[in-house]
Simulated scan of single mutants.
Amino acid sequence: MNKDKTKNFSHSVLFWLKEPEIATVRAKFESEAKKLIAESRYAHFSHFGVPAGTDRAVVDNSYTYSMIVTFETVADHDAYQTEDAHLHFIKECKELWTKVVIYDVLSL
Rank of each mutant, 00 (worst) to 15 (best):
D76M: 06
S66E: 11
V25G: 02
E72I: 04
E19S: 15
V50N: 04
N8Q: 11
D104C: 03
F9K: 12
V25P: 00
E21S: 14
K34G: 04
P51T: 08
S31G: 08
S31T: 13
K94G: 13
F89S: 02
L96Y: 01
F15G: 09
D4T: 14
F45M: 15
I37Q: 01
I90Q: 14
S10R: 08
Y42Q: 03
Y63E: 02
T70V: 02
I22G: 04
A75Y: 01
K28H: 04
H11A: 05
K7M: 08
A75N: 08
W16E: 06
W97F: 15
H77L: 15
R56Q: 04
V13C: 02
L17H: 10
D84P: 13
T24H: 10
T6C: 07
S107K: 15
V58P: 03
N8P: 03
V105D: 08
R26K: 10
D60N: 02
S62H: 07
Y63S: 08
F15T: 13
H44W: 09
K7P: 14
W16F: 07
I90S: 09
V101Q: 13
A79V: 05
E21F: 10
T54W: 03
S46G: 08
K91Y: 01
V101P: 09
L36C: 01
A85Y: 01
V13I: 11
P20N: 07
T73A: 07
K5F: 12
T82Q: 11
L96K: 04
V74I: 15
I37G: 05
M67I: 14
P51G: 02
T73K: 07
V101Y: 08
K35L: 11
A27M: 03
S31M: 05
E21M: 14
Y63T: 09
T6V: 10
T54Q: 10
S107L: 13
F29T: 03
W16V: 11
A75G: 01
E95W: 09
S66F: 08
S46C: 12
I90C: 07
I22T: 12
H44V: 12
G49T: 10
L108W: 13
D76H: 04
K34F: 11
A33N: 00
K5S: 11
E83F: 00
F9R: 12
S12A: 13
T98P: 03
A79L: 11
K34P: 05
H86T: 01
V74K: 08
D84S: 11
S31E: 12
F89R: 05
Y103H: 14
A79G: 06
P20D: 10
L108Y: 11
E19L: 12
E30H: 01
G53H: 01
V69G: 00
S66Y: 06
H77G: 10
V59F: 00
W97K: 09
D78I: 07
V105W: 07
C93D: 00
D104T: 10
I37V: 14
E72R: 11
M1Y: 10
E39T: 05
A43M: 05
G49L: 05
A79T: 06
T54I: 13
T24D: 04
T64K: 04
A33E: 05
T24I: 06
S10V: 10
N8I: 15
S40H: 00
E32W: 03
